[in-house]
Amino acid sequence: MSNIKIEIRQEDVSKIKEICASYNRDPQELINILHACQEHFGYLPAEVQEVISAETGIPVAKIYGVVTFYSFFSMTPKGKHPISICMGTACYVRGAERVLEEFKKELKLQVGQTTPDGKFSLSSLRCVGACGLAPVVLIGDKTYGRVAPDDVKKILKEYE
């Protein structure tokens, strides 16, 4: 499991319990519960999964299996400005790979990592459906369209 150990605060435990209760602690609602918890915490550390397990009666190993199965769920915290590069086919044929390379180079990060200061995290995703704007980069909620490798420095400057 994740090597990050966090202290989970009492109020966070209450929040998880509240979320589980809103779904009647129904094991079939596990994915909705995980969505709600990730929205609240930003990620799903092992400690959160343990509380969900206690609430719903689903073994923690099963929860871990579900969390790691779906790419939307993450066990590591994302950066303050999460950067996602669309690697859908449309973006790929229009050169998304080189844009991703440029971000990796500029931030000295690999996909799935977060900068030590917690500012940026880098991920690739499959098709946001804005194929007319390919290649597309998302930073937080902001969408950048028709991104060329040359634009990367300029884009990152906006967040300094």
């Binding site: 994915i31 779906y70 499959r126």
Partner: peptide, 18 residues
């Protein structure tokens, strides 16, 4: 939650069951 295989109907149903 981001799994391509869930487009397959039996996989989709399992996903809906948590």
């Amino acid at each position: 939650a981001g799994a391509f295989v869930c487009g397959e109907e039996t996989a989709l149903i399992h996903s809906m069951e948590g």
